[in-house]
Simulated scan of single mutants.
Amino acid sequence: MLSSTSAETVRATLPAVGGAIEEITPLFYDKLFAAHPELLRDLFNRGNQANGAQRQALAGAFAAFATSLVTHPETRPDALLSRIAHKHASLGVTAEQYPIVRRYLFEAIAEILGDAVTDEVVAAWDEVYWLMANALISIEAKLYAEAGAPDGDTWRRYRVAARIGETDDVATYVVRPVDGDPAPAARPGQYVSVQVRLPDGARQIRQYSLSGDPEGGLQFSVKRAAGSPEGEVSNYLHDRVGVGETLLISAPFGDVVLADGDSPVLLASAGIGCTPMIGMLTHLAAMGATRRVLVAHADHSERTHAFRDELSRLTALLPAATADVWYEAPEGEWPADRTGLADLGTLDIPAGTVAYLCGPLPFLRAARTQLLAAGVRPADVHYEVFGPDLWLGGDE
């Protein structure tokens, strides 16, 4: 927790820092990448830097952590820290990188806020930074130790054993370690990072949810990312990586995992957000689960719905499972009450349900609102979002 002196200073300056954080973070990244271009080339997602998503996520997380320190001084925002630490571990972030980030972040703060940044203000916010950084370093060290890589290097080379076209723009990859040793154990809902060397020499890394549990290997699914900028890694995988090719892949990470137990569970997704849910369903079916399972999925149409047949197959294997699907533009006959956007408020959700959500941020916000209105406890609503988590620091 913050010292009393620093707490007073942070509380007094939080409106100024928070109000300027969206100016501070672009300048911070500009300074960081000017001094260390290899970080943009080989670690940070260039697409998310170009569209501003990563900068917005950092701003929200840092401001949320500082706010938590002064408004709830007796508790630590572990959910926020865990989410960031798992992402860092999947990228191979190390303790040595935190002082580098601190240097350029504080240079940006000083440049934007000018004379308001006194020695007292610097000392107080330095305390905030290192409370957050040291907490993350500690969590990440435990994650690396659990993965058998205390140095933070969890990368292994895998060979593509199978590639399955789920839809026109979604492909599933089944991979197995080149060294012949078993693939690491993964919990349902986790993801892996995939590292590729692009034609311009950059090493770019992206996270993909595990969508199954093949014997001796890993399975993840990739949607080709269109738009501007295009998804560099997803397009590379779709265009260049087939059976027999090799990939560098991290150990599995991710804090949104299916909990054991007998409580009812709701798996709600939209679009490619179905991948971790299919992974969870695969696990439930393999375990012969008898708990109540509700699956809710929203997609554009039947044609774009990845794992459509697999969803039907897996729910049929579970004695107490049902699936509700919404299509915005169904191509065939489809129920009118399941046409359009998903409305989880129309489902009969049992008391004590634990919900897992994955999809775009607007879907997550709407789904959470509907679930809370249906009586699901806030603590029982868990979410995964692809890309930078722009919800970090919000109510969970």
Rank of each mutant, 00 (worst) to 15 (best):
E230S: 15
G92H: 00
D181N: 15
F62I: 13
W125Y: 12
E107C: 08
A185Y: 01
A61S: 14
G288S: 05
I100Y: 00
D299C: 06
A202G: 10
L371G: 08
S312I: 06
T322Y: 01
P252A: 05
G352P: 09
M287V: 09
L390A: 10
N48R: 09
A251M: 11
L248S: 15
D115V: 08
A185W: 00
S4H: 01
G114C: 06
G189D: 04
P378D: 13
L39R: 00
P199H: 09
A35C: 00
V174I: 12
A374Q: 13
A366P: 08
L281V: 03
G261L: 12
A50I: 07
A53S: 14
D213T: 11
G279S: 02
E302L: 03
E8I: 01
G359K: 05
R176Y: 05
P177C: 12
W130R: 03
L267W: 02
W155I: 06
Q195Y: 03
D126C: 06
D343N: 14
E333Y: 04
A66L: 10
G394K: 12
I164N: 05
P150G: 04
A379H: 14
E302W: 01
Y98S: 05
A123N: 10
H283E: 10
S193R: 01
P199Q: 08
N134R: 12
V70H: 11
Y129E: 00
P276Q: 04
R103Q: 10
Q190R: 07
A316L: 09
D42M: 00
G114I: 05
Y144H: 13
R157K: 15
E140P: 10
I137V: 14
A270N: 08
P37N: 02
R292I: 01
